[in-house]
Nucleic acid binder design. Structure first.
Lengths: 209, 209
DNA sequence: TAGATTGTTAATCGATTAACAATC
DNA sequence: TAGATTGTTAATCGATTAACAATC
């Protein structure tokens, strides 16, 4: 299968948001130019992006556009269900809880199995049908459930020591929400959610106006 | 001043992270090839990006590289976090609270003044010295404090109606954390924090290995 | 039919990489 | 000096936009 670039993946997720919105409004179809206008891109680019997908209903219809359900499912298939991943959230603070409630994840093949925290008051509680376990239970559950990914939402001052523990527990992929540069062995992948970087990006964009 | 593209801005924020790390380790200098390797880009591209900056010390030195402090400050100046921005957080759920606690923001010129919610149980509480107000108080506080930016963390089903209210209240910049594409007038800027898009980049990266 | 919309090719634009003289 | 590194130009690559025949 042809490799889809980061830029296209990004736009596909945005089309998906638009489609969810249209479905809520009981719309049946959507045109490339409508989505193009909402995202500020060219309409032929939208059609080109859609050409990467496998539309169950065949093709878009002239004078009508695309079936919103068909398009939504095609995006989910292309992006999300190729290799679904199980993950644990480590850190049941506000950010961890917010992400645990973020139902959208499962549409894209990310299954949050459970949360972990070192605070005994949180252990045993449930968030969105996911249980909070004590962090000491993590190695055991990694073995039992075979999850390899962690969404890391602990305070930054504990991030590195937590990561060392995760690495020792055979976690391979870390989606890091702490504003910290983590040190990990070569066989472990870290993806930094650089919120400040994203803000500065916005900040620069609006200051130029 | 020449407009700097999104891609370059993005890399500049990443160089900035690397520099903070190097300064912590008491390094004096950094070469383009070191940063290039850390970010997986070409070293000539790093040098080209740096050419957009205004280095106080003039230029990089052959055989030595760039002064880390000089480079860090030049990036900060170019990205403009000299001119701090005031913002409100709208939505005092888990994500809003998490961001209110995110002290790092103020280091980068983002001052969160207060939070807003429509839940009366939350009104009057304090988070990190910031008060939670009822959403109906927002127009008044916008006028009094002159804030123009909102960090939007309401559930996606309420995002659009909240945005309509914010627009009517003269908010100009919206940093949107809901997985929704918002409709706004031309004079309002939205920056989507597309978490799913970010996750899918990670997902693609690791599934290609 | 007339007109709106798709799918796709060709043209354009911008970003990345290669190369290398200048520098210290 | 010899060698490492910068700054910058030219070449390459990829992404976006324009254009338009085909369709319903």
């Amino acid at each position: 299968m042809q490799k889809i670039s980061d830029k296209i993946i990004n736009r596909l997720t945005l089309y998906h948001c638009i489609l969810i919105d249209l479905i809520k409004k009981n719309e049946q179809n959507v045109t490339s130019s409508l989505m193009a206008e909402l995202l500020g891109v060219d309409d032929s680019q939208v059609r080109k992006d859609i050409a990467f997908l496998n539309l169950a209903g065949g093709k878009g219809k002239s004078r009508v556009g695309y079936d919103v359900f068909d398009l939504k499912i095609a995006i989910e298939k292309t992006l999300g269900f190729q290799s679904p991943k199980d993950a644990f959230i480590v850190g049941a603070g506000n950010l961890g809880l917010a992400l645990a409630k973020y139902d959208n994840f499962s549409n894209y093949g990310l299954n949050v199995l459970a949360l972990f925290d070192n605070n005994n008051k949180k252990v045993g509680t449930n968030v969105n049908d996911k249980e909070v376990f004590h962090i000491s239970k993590l190695p055991n559950l990694v073995r039992r459930l075979g999850a390899e990914m962690v969404i890391l939402t602990v305070p930054s001052e504990y991030a590195q020591e937590t990561v060392d523990f995760l690495v020792a527990s055979k976690i391979k992929y870390i989606w890091n929400f702490s504003p910290t540069v983590l040190k990990v062995p070569k066989n472990v992948e870290v993806w930094n959610e650089n919120l400040m970087g994203n803000f500065l990006h916005f900040s620069y964009k609006i200051s130029g106006e």
